[in-house]
Amino acid sequence: MPEDLLPNQLLTARGLEAGYPGKQILFGVDLAVAPAEVVVLLGANGSGKSTALNTLSGFVRPWAGSIRFEGAEIAGRPPHRIFRRGIVQVSQARDLFPDLTVEDNLRLGAWARGGAVDALAEDVFRSFPRLAERRRQMVRLMSGGEQQMVAIGRALMGRPKLLLLDEPSGGLAPVFVKEIAAIIAELKRRAIAMVIVEQNIKLALSIADRFLILRDGRVTQRQDIRAGAADEQDIVRSIYL
């Protein structure tokens, strides 16, 4: 049994099959996340990484398999129910509220799970000073990197127990990639469990506890890298060759 299917996990997905009308994408994916653990999902374009995250968050309905989160079965539940349990996703498209201000975007992040909204927002502004300076700015007028910060900040407003990040560094300039990496490292220190899809392998390996390689909808490799670093070249080879 792979080590990530042991009990006491925060999330355990088994035998996930999912896809779109007439096109299966995931073929029996197993994935587990322990509390405070960071799992990175690697894979070539079109290998099904986003589909896997969307299945966990409920935006894609699994055809088969089970997803247990804190002991409850959540496979096939609507996204808003899954969100309420504490699984919050930052999608690849970021899906912000473009015509609303940074502040309103953040507040809407706390809509479902409540809490001390103002205190949560101030906390986000402390982590993202760049957003604090622009709190009244409309999100559509912000740069890609700033928008990614809004997306992550808004996800934090939902007080996630499990954060799903889909290519957080995607399409960002090196300065922003660094900044985002620092933020993710900070979230890891705060013991927020994460599943991260990331193309930037250096970044991925710097934050991961474990990684999985997805290939045509199947997990072809899984490795714990807490004990020792993995070889980057090896990983690139197993992703693409």
Partner: peptide, 10 residues
């Protein structure tokens, strides 16, 4: 503003 984002925010 964004129906999909609304759903993603629960």
């Amino acid at each position: 503003d964004n129906e999909l984002a609304a759903a993603a925010m629960g």
